[in-house]
Design a protein around this nucleic acid. Structure first.
Lengths: 95, 95
DNA sequence: CCTTATGCTTAAAGCTCTTAATCATTAAAA
DNA sequence: TTTTAATGATTAAGAGCTTTAAGCATAAGG
């Protein structure tokens, strides 16, 4: 049951990882081993968290890669669910 | 904690959805509203379950789209974790 | 023999993820 | 005020994924 519009995972990175440590996007990107553009795009909601990026985040911030990718999944799913009624699918099994 | 090699979600579609209903790939693809090739590739582990496909599966088989996409996430993550040590990431926060 | 189902290949379009280089703006420091 | 650092954005590019259509060869069944 997904009812609310989940925030983009990039917002979580900014608020829960960068700001508490007073990290700049530039420095965090260096630590993560990605370009500044890549991290900037994610933080500003323009790109998604890839599986590899989830592992990078888990190393840098001592979290679980699963939590990062699950957040992305919830975000993706919410948007996919918005188009549920537009999909022309025939029900094959009853509820 | 992910320790085992999770099966590709396509295997689950085949074993838990198609076979119990004695559905052919061709017929299931028609019901899902995708090409035969698309479903065949997923079932044979060549393609992944997209968010939209998760919603299609949830409609056709009266399941939750979340469960389908979570299976894909676990699969993706397991493979990304295999390369954890190859990623050049600097730890920024302690465990 | 003919039909059906299947997996595979080719070719193509569209999208995502990533990089490097560049530019304009903002904010802080000297 | 001038200079430097950080940021968000754009452009250009390559690699890969998802999807489609069309076609081919194989296997199974009537």
């Amino acid at each position: 049951m997904i009812m609310h519009n989940p925030p983009h995972p990039g917002l979580i990175i900014k608020e829960l990882c960068l700001e508490p440590l007073e990290l700049t996007v530039t420095d965090a990107a260096k630590a993560l081993g990605v370009s500044r553009k890549t991290l900037s795009s994610i933080i500003n909601g323009k790109s998604n968290i890839s599986p590899e990026m989830a592992v990078r985040l888990s190393i840098a911030f001592s979290t679980s890669s699963e939590s990062w990718l699950n957040q992305q999944t919830q975000y993706d799913l919410w948007h996919a669910e918005q188009k549920r009624k537009e999909l022309n699918v025939i029900k094959l099994a009853a509820a």
